[in-house]
Computed example of a mutant assay.
Amino acid sequence: MQDHHKPGPEESDLGQQLGEAVSEEIGSLVRLELAAEQMLEDEAALAGAYLKDDVQQAKTYLAELRAELLMLESRAVHWLLEAADPTQRDWLRLHCHISHGEQVAMAGEVVHDSRLQCLACQAVTLAKGTVTLGPCQACGCDLFQTLTAH
């Protein structure tokens, strides 16, 4: 004999409550998953913003470092030139200018109606008449480039 048991009202309510609880739990898990995905998306956007900022800061740092290294290089060259024998320096500079075909005059030479530019500081000196050329009044350098006859 088969026993066909029909669910009673209590069992039906229990099944319905269980189904609602499962549905509610699934809905809760789906909302949690969506919230986790949104958080991950927000974190990725934030990480991207930090990386962009870091790249910009690195560019700025490298530009400042380059400028500082160039300044240090310039100082080192200046210190080395200051430590070098001035006579040797001047002869090297004079030879360089003469080898390029430039008209060069040195302090102590006699010049006539000349416009001269100091090879060290670029200051311009006007020699009117016939004069013995002295060192540059601005920096003391003894080498001048003849610009034009005056």
Rank of each mutant, 00 (worst) to 15 (best):
C136M: 08
L34I: 08
L70C: 09
A149I: 13
D13N: 07
K128L: 09
V110W: 03
L34G: 13
D85V: 00
E33V: 01
G129I: 08
Q57F: 15
H112C: 10
S114K: 11
S28M: 07
Q17D: 10
M1K: 12
S28N: 07
I26C: 05
V77H: 06
L46T: 15
A36Y: 02
V22A: 07
R93T: 06
A83S: 06
T60S: 06
I26K: 12
M1Y: 11
L94F: 07
A36R: 11
D53K: 14
E37N: 11
G15V: 14
L92C: 11
L81A: 04
A58I: 09
A149Q: 13
L116P: 04
H100R: 11
T146K: 13
E82V: 08
A76C: 04
G101E: 05
V22S: 08
C136Y: 06
G15A: 14
S114F: 02
A49N: 12
S12H: 07
Y50I: 11
L81M: 02
M106G: 08
T146L: 15
T87D: 12
L69S: 10
L62F: 12
L72S: 09
E20M: 06
G15L: 14
D3N: 04
Q56D: 14
L70I: 01
T146N: 06
D3Y: 04
G108N: 02
Q88R: 15
R66T: 03
H100M: 15
A45M: 12
L29W: 11
A123M: 10
T125N: 01
C121G: 10
T87W: 15
Q17S: 12
K6C: 06
L94S: 07
L40P: 01
E73N: 14
S23D: 14
L51R: 09
R75V: 03
T146G: 12
S114E: 03
K6T: 03
Y61L: 12
Y50W: 09
V22F: 10
Y50H: 13
K59R: 15
G129M: 06
E11A: 13
S23C: 07
G27S: 09
L62T: 12
L70A: 11
L34Q: 14
L147P: 08
E37I: 13
L65D: 12
V104Q: 03
V22I: 14
E20K: 15
M71C: 00
E10N: 04
A123I: 00
P86I: 12
L69T: 07
S28L: 09
C139M: 03
G27Q: 10
T60G: 03
T148Q: 13
D54R: 14
D54M: 10
M106H: 07
V110Q: 12
G19N: 09
E25H: 07
G48L: 09
S12G: 11
L147S: 08
D54A: 15
D85F: 03
A149G: 09
R93F: 01
L51F: 04
C139I: 05
T60A: 13
L62H: 04
D54H: 08
G8S: 12
T130F: 00
A45Q: 15
G134D: 05
G8W: 11
Q117H: 00
H78I: 07
K128G: 00
D85K: 01
T146A: 11
G129C: 04
D142K: 15
Q88C: 02
L65Y: 07
Q57T: 13
G48V: 05
T132R: 01
F144S: 01
Y61C: 08
W91A: 10
E102I: 02
R75C: 02
C141L: 00
